[in-house]
């Protein structure tokens, strides 16, 4: 909880940073620059919250043995896992929601102030799609759900919280860099093998909608539906693997 609050505050502070560190803004519109900070906080801090919260919620129960009285009640291990994953997801969604509200507020306030400013930003596009921000936030919730189910898989298997946290972050990094790894570190036969291996890990980069969503462009409902399907497939896969691991775990 403390960590959650700390990260939520960091996210909001990072957003405030977007308002006050305009000297790093090169060429893009001010509102987009603020959105960049908000989106960055959602994905980076959101991933940290996801891994830590999932490990805490699932492996924490195993580590502190609070799982023993729970599983001695008429609760199936699969039900326990689903409950924990939903709990983790609720935490993640709350976190994303806090940052989304903060971002929308920041954008709204700045948008109201902009006409009063000098002409220095003239030419840049001042319009901002609030729907785009909501779409981005919604898609992040699904991305983080995938990360949560992967972390749950490792939490079910782990014998220390460090292992679960490390593996969660490891998969996150690999998932983010999946495309780059193939492009940079392989050629010929090696690249083919690498391509095959990268299929083992979900591609988390597909959820990086980029800032074009804030301009209201390219938000095709069919593509969003595709992303949601992609997230659900991987959540079910890793959720099932986590259930399998938990089913065989001895307490």
């Amino acid at each position: 909880m403390r960590l959650f609050l700390l990260l939520a505050v960091s996210g909001v502070v990072s957003l405030a940073g977007g308002l006050y560190f305009q000297e790093f803004n090169l060429g893009s519109s001010e509102l987009r620059f603020i959105a960049d900070f908000g989106f960055g906080a959602m994905t980076l801090l959101g991933s940290i919250v996801t891994v830590v919260a999932t490990v805490q919620l699932l492996f924490g129960e195993i580590e502190h043995r609070t799982i023993l009285p729970i599983l001695s009640k008429p609760v199936r291990r699969g039900e326990f896992l689903v409950g924990k994953l939903l709990g983790a997801w609720l935490t993640i969604c709350s976190f994303v929601a806090i940052l989304t509200v903060a971002l929308l507020l920041a954008l709204f306030i700045r948008e109201q102030q902009l006409p009063e400013l000098t002409d220095e930003t003239l030419g840049a596009d001042h319009s901002v799609s609030y729907l785009g921000v909501l779409v981005f936030a919604g898609v992040q919730c699904f991305r983080l759900m995938v990360l949560a189910s992967i972390t749950a898989f490792f939490s079910g298997y782990a014998s220390s919280s460090m292992f679960a946290v490390f593996m969660g972050f490891f998969v996150w990094v690999i998932g983010q860099l999946r495309g780059s790894l193939v492009a940079q570190w392989g050629e010929g036969f090696g690249q083919s093998v690498l391509k095959l291996l990268t299929l083992l890990i979900p591609d988390l980069r597909v959820f990086d909608l980029g800032t074009q969503v804030i301009e209201g462009a390219g938000v095709a409902p069919i593509s969003i539906a595709g992303l949601v399907c992609y997230a659900l497939v991987y959540t079910v896969l890793y959720g099932s693997l986590a259930a399998l691991v938990l089913k065989h775990r001895e307490f």
């Binding site: 597909v206 399907c229 497939v233």
Partner: peptide, 14 residues
């Protein structure tokens, strides 16, 4: 199986 899904979403991510 999700390769086509992944490719279709890349138009969105740019």
């Amino acid at each position: 199986l999700t390769q086509p899904l992944r490719r279709s979403t890349q138009t969105l991510t740019g």
